[in-house]
C-alpha cells in the first residue's frame, strides 16, 4: 500500500513536505487508522491524533485523498492509491497531521453548548415527549471532529468570525431542545453577518460528516427560526 503523507516538524522545518510510505497491511487492518498506527511503529516521528479508534472521540479527522474524514472510519478497500493524507484544510498546522483546534472550540463554546433553564428543576428530571426527543436526533450525535468546518469554504475565509457548520449544528441542538428556555437569546446571538450568515449552503459540511449528520439542514432550520421570530 502506497501512502503520501504531509510532514511538518515545527522545530526543524520551514516548509511542509510530502513523504512517501510503502507498507503491507496485515489481514487484521481494516481501516486507515490501523495502517497509520502500523506506520507509526516503523517511523515514530509521524504524528497524528487518535483515541477511540471507532468514530466516537473525533480526534483523527484529516484530509484523505482530498476529502475530510476520520481515519478510523475510512475502510482501506475504498481507498484509491496513493493514499494522500494532509491535515484538515484551513486549520493551523501544529505538526504533521495535527492541527490547532483552539478557534474551533472557541466557536463551540460561544454558542453556550449546555441547557439554559432558570426554572427550578423538577424532583427527578425534565421530561420530554417522544416527539420532543425525536427533534434532537441528527444533532446530538455530533462528535466535534471538525471534518465539516474544515471543509467549509466560508469557514476557510472567515475562521475567526463565522461559527462554522459544527458550531451551528450544536447551536441548533440547543435551540431545538424543548427543555432549553434561551431560544430567543440564542437566535439573537446568531443573527449576525458573520456568525450565521456567512453560510452559502454549499453543503460541503454535509458531504463529509463522518456521522452522516447534516449541518446545512441545521443552518436552514436556524434561518427559518429567525424568520419566524422576527415576523
Amino acid at each position: 500500500m502506497h501512502l503520501r503523507i504531509y510532514r511538518f516538524n515545527p522545530d526543524t522545518d520551514t516548509q511542509p513536505r510530502m513523504q512517501d510510505y510503502d507498507i503491507t497491511p496485515e489481514a487484521s487492518d481494516k481501516k486507515l487508522l490501523d495502517v497509520l498506527v502500523r506506520l507509526k511503529s516503523v517511523d515514530d516521528s509521524l504524528s497524528f491524533r487518535r483515541s477511540c479508534r471507532e468514530g466516537i472521540c473525533g480526534s483523527d479527522a484529516m484530509n484523505i485523498n482530498g476529502r475530510n474524514g476520520l481515519a478510523c472510519l475510512q475502510s482501506l478497500d475504498e481507498l484509491k492509491q496513493p493514499v494522500v493524507l494532509r491535515p484538515l484544510p484551513g486549520f493551523p498546522v501544529i505538526r504533521d497531521l495535527i492541527v490547532d483546534m483552539t478557534l474551533f472550540f472557541a466557536h463551540y463554546h460561544s454558542i453556550k453548548p449546555y441547557l439554559i433553564n432558570p426554572e427550578s428543576p423538577p424532583e427527578r428530571e425534565r421530561l420530554q415527549t417522544p416527539e420532543q426527543r425525536e427533534r434532537l436526533n441528527g444533532l446530538y450525535e455530533c462528535i466535534l471532529c471538525a471534518c465539516c468546518s474544515a471543509f467549509c469554504p466560508s469557514f476557510w475565509w472567515n475562521p475567526d468570525k463565522f461559527i462554522g457548520p459544527a458550531g451551528l449544528l450544536q447551536a441548533y441542538r440547543f435551540i431545538a431542545d424543548s427543555r432549553d428556555t434561551a431560544t430567543a437569546e440564542r437566535l439573537d446571538y446568531l443573527d449576525d453577518v458573520y456568525r450565521l450568515y456567512r453560510c452559502r449552503t454549499i453543503m460541503n459540511c454535509t458531504e463529509v460528516c463522518p456521522k452522516g449528520l447534516s449541518p446545512s439542514h441545521a443552518i436552514e432550520q436556524i434561518r427559518l427560526a429567525l424568520l419566524k421570530q422576527s415576523s
Partner: peptide, 12 residues
Amino acid sequence: VRLFSGQRAWVA
C-alpha cells in the same frame, strides 16, 4: 459595515 446586516441582508 452594517448597511445591511445579518438576517435583513439575507431576506433582501
